[in-house]
């Protein structure tokens, strides 16, 4: 046998499958959307508030779905609560050095925050007759505190999954410390895209939309750089991507999910009105394929 690429090649795949890919995607959307909503709440104009509300509307269902997906992925779903409480002593189960452990807590707490955001957005839009809830969003002081914490948690939820993968011994996952960063950046790009899609559909033209659009382009460019950094940091392990997965990564993520959308940002005339929509869809597709490739490729080696 030749010298192995890395000692990680002797571990076993956990068989995290479609549920997990979907969770990574949906979880990214939840965290990203919430964060964007907070960002708009703080830095946007008053006209942008619907856009921010959209973020909260996306975040909450997505985080609920995330919890569901994660629970379903357990081989003993009825024991999901063992993540939070010790099965024997019922004491709090919290292991700060285990991303899965803090991740579970983060999911729970962030779920709470996104529920708050969701409710206050509903209240603001008068869909919920509970005016007090409005104060749970900026600009009020309470709202500011809530949303800062929630926004940070959103980033955490979006990014811990990458750290979780890194804190294993699987090839690729644990051969680079950059997956968390990649997931964080990607969470922002897919969330922005999804929000833009909705905005596009509702034909919104408030300034925030264009800002979000621009931000999306920047983030996708950053994501591209981070992905290249990931590849470099893999060193010899990069050879594991000289496979069908690598092809998918190249075409599905880099070309479809990054280069074409970037080109579409730069060359607005290409598809005219459809330009922004197409770019957003492609970024979402790319973001999904990115998670797919990362989850599956490391388990097939």
């Amino acid at each position: 046998m030749n010298t192995p690429l890395s000692s990680t090649f002797f571990s076993a795949p956990p068989e995290w499958g479609w549920l997990i890919v979907l969770y990574f995607f949906v979880g990214g959307l939840a965290g990203g959307s919430y964060f964007l909503a907070v960002l708009i709440d703080f830095f946007g104009r008053p006209e942008d508030r619907p856009l921010a509300r959209l973020g909260y509307y996306i975040a909450f269902p997505c985080i609920v779905l995330s919890g569901l997906l994660l629970t379903l992925d357990l081989t003993r779903p009825e024991r999901f609560w063992h993540m939070l409480f010790d099965a024997h002593s019922f004491r709090l189960m919290f292991k700060p050095w285990s991303p899965m452990s803090i991740g579970s807590w983060a999911l729970l707490v962030f779920g709470l925050f996104s529920l708050i955001g969701f409710l206050s957005a509903l209240a603001e839009a008068d869909r919920l007759k509970w005016p007090a809830a409005r104060s749970l969003r900026p600009p009020g002081i309470i709202g500011a505190i809530v949303s800062v914490i929630g926004g940070l948690l959103g980033f955490f939820v979006a990014g811990y999954t990458g750290v979780l993968l890194a804190v294993t011994n699987r090839p690729i996952w644990s051969d680079t410390p950059l997956l968390g960063m990649l997931f964080v950046v990607s969470a922002a790009s897919i969330s922005a895209s999804l929000m833009l899609l909705f905005a596009e559909k509702s034909r919104w033209t408030m300034p925030g939309v264009r800002a979000l659009h621009r931000m999306d382009a920047w983030v996708v460019a950053l994501e591209f750089i981070v992905l290249i950094a990931v590849m470099i940091s893999l060193g010899p392990v990069f050879r594991a991507w000289l496979s069908a997965w690598g092809l998918l990564l190249f075409f599905g993520v880099i070309v479809v999910g990054m280069l074409i959308p970037l080109a579409l940002f730069w060359r607005r005339e290409w598809l005219g009105a459809l330009n922004a929509t197409a770019a957003a869809v492609l970024i979402l597709v790319g973001g999904f394929i990115l998670r797919l490739v990362i989850v599956f490729s490391a388990q097939g080696v």
């Binding site: 946007g44 980033f155 950059l178 922002a188 408030m206 264009r210 800002a211 621009r214 931000m215 920047w218």
Partner: peptide, 27 residues
């Protein structure tokens, strides 16, 4: 590194929303 990523994204967001161009639409 994840935190760094978050900061970068945050900065991009702040910059994007601060420098937005003209043409505000209707809320």
């Amino acid at each position: 590194l994840s935190a760094l990523g978050a900061i970068a994204v945050g900065l991009m967001g702040v910059i994007s929303f601060r420098n937005r161009g003209a043409g505000a639409g209707e809320d």
